[in-house]
């Protein structure tokens, strides 16, 4: 009798520990999903992956005329979007703090209206937080009618706080088919 109750209590203990371990499993699963926003925040804070704040900032007046920064532009159209898309000028030399405007041209080669969304990325990553956009076509999705071509402006400045050793940076745009 005593042995039977000992076995019963042991199997109860076993089950209890099993459930406790299951909590660790649930926490690990939650951690996996938690990593998604965490990673996003980390990238924005550190400029990892060249992620930039995709919101408009207001202009500021301090211009550092003693320095030049070379800003290059590259463009990509991702699979599934029948557009052509390229910058009008491939690079520009700017003084940090001075507001510049450059133009990109996109043309819809499909015979229907298509929406695209541009996703920016700055390289080197550590320069990304100093690249400030005042106005950008990437802030919202762009609808292009069949065959329509559009000049899309980008107004930006490079923050004067940018470290001295950054002499050049590249802004890359990837145009994706916009999510419906």
């Amino acid at each position: 009798m005593e042995k039977i109750s000992a076995i019963a209590s042991l199997s109860q203990l076993n089950r209890q520990l099993g459930y406790k371990l299951l909590v660790i499993v649930a926490m690990a699963l939650a951690f996996a999903y938690g990593l998604v926003p965490l990673y996003d925040v980390l990238c924005r804070v550190t400029g990892l992956n060249g992620k930039t704040e995709n919101v408009a900032v207001s202009a500021q007046s301090r211009v550092d005329a003693t320095r030049w920064v070379e800003v290059s532009f590259t463009s990509n159209v991702m699979p599934g979007l029948a557009w052509s898309f390229h910058p009008v000028q491939s690079s520009i030399r700017v003084h940090p703090g001075k507001i510049e405007t450059v133009t990109f041209i996109a043309r819809n080669m499909a015979n229907e209206t298509v929406a695209g969304q541009a996703v920016p990325s700055v390289s080197p990553g550590k320069a990304s937080e100093y690249f400030k956009k005042i106005e950008c076509f990437c802030f919202q999705r762009q609808d292009l009618k069949a065959g329509e071509s559009r000049e899309m402006p980008l107004r930006f400045y490079v923050s004067p706080d940018i470290p001295d050793d950054v002499k050049a940076l590249t802004l890359s745009y990837a145009f994706y088919s916009a999510i419906k």
């Binding site: 649930a26 690990a28 951690f31 996996a32 998604v36 991702m78 088919s177 999510i179």
Partner: peptide, 29 residues
Amino acid sequence: IATIPVLAGAVTMLLTDRHFGTHFFDAAG
């Protein structure tokens, strides 16, 4: 028990990206 759920989560995100309109790994979204 600490890492397999992370893989399970990652492939589940992949599954929902593929079929259910999420964009965990899609820069456009």
